[in-house]
Design a protein around this nucleic acid. Sequence first.
DNA 1: CGCCTTTGACCTGCGC
DNA 2: GCGCAGGTCAAAGGCG
Length: 217
Amino acid sequence: MEGERGVSNCEIQVSFSTTQAIHEMGFVQYEENQMMSFMAPAQSSHHHHHHQTSQPLNNATIGNSSTTNSTTTVAFGLNNQVGRTLDPKAVEGENYSSNINDRNNNSWWRRSASEKGKVNNKVRRKLREPRFCFQTRSDVDVLDDGYKWRKYGQKVVKNSLHPRSYYRCTQNNCRVKKRVERLSEDCRMVITTYEGRHNHSPSHDSNSSDHQPFSSF
DNA sequence: CGCCTTTGACCTGCGC
DNA sequence: GCGCAGGTCAAAGGCG
């Protein structure tokens, strides 16, 4: 019902975080196109190198067209282990700002419910996708990032007034997910969290200029 | 008619 | 073990 397209005046704040919740740390402000450069670091399968800001890849506009004063809060979750960890919570609690409120035990890397019980109990592949979240001051809930999303769930969040929505990328073999929720105190702030990397380019409409190596989101 | 959202049920991890 | 909290499924309805 809410018109998703067209961010009027969104204000985004960027910062890095490792373990803290978002509101506990200072925010750095970036331009919007610089902000999108944070989506680029694929930081792929090698652990042990910390994030470095990659070079700004340009026009990947969050928000449709007229996003002038934008500020974003970014928090990386570098879940960089290569699937050999068998203790899920050993790696999970470390570094990403999952919930704004209190605990950070979310686990949304798991697969479908039919697959987990009865596969070979030998290989337990809890491969975690890279996560990426940022905070935006915007009126619309889901920002137009160039991809198409289908909503697959909504939950109420404890100690929050606003629900959290779960989206999945509608491309065929793309399993990127994202969550969108609003801050409980400040309902103008939207927190968007991405998980995974798109294996395709953004399919806006027929916007043929989306052609960059956008392998991360 | 196909793709989307809605919404309650179900599942799972975790703390008590 | 139980209950809670978060994440996902899927049936049903909506809308273009």
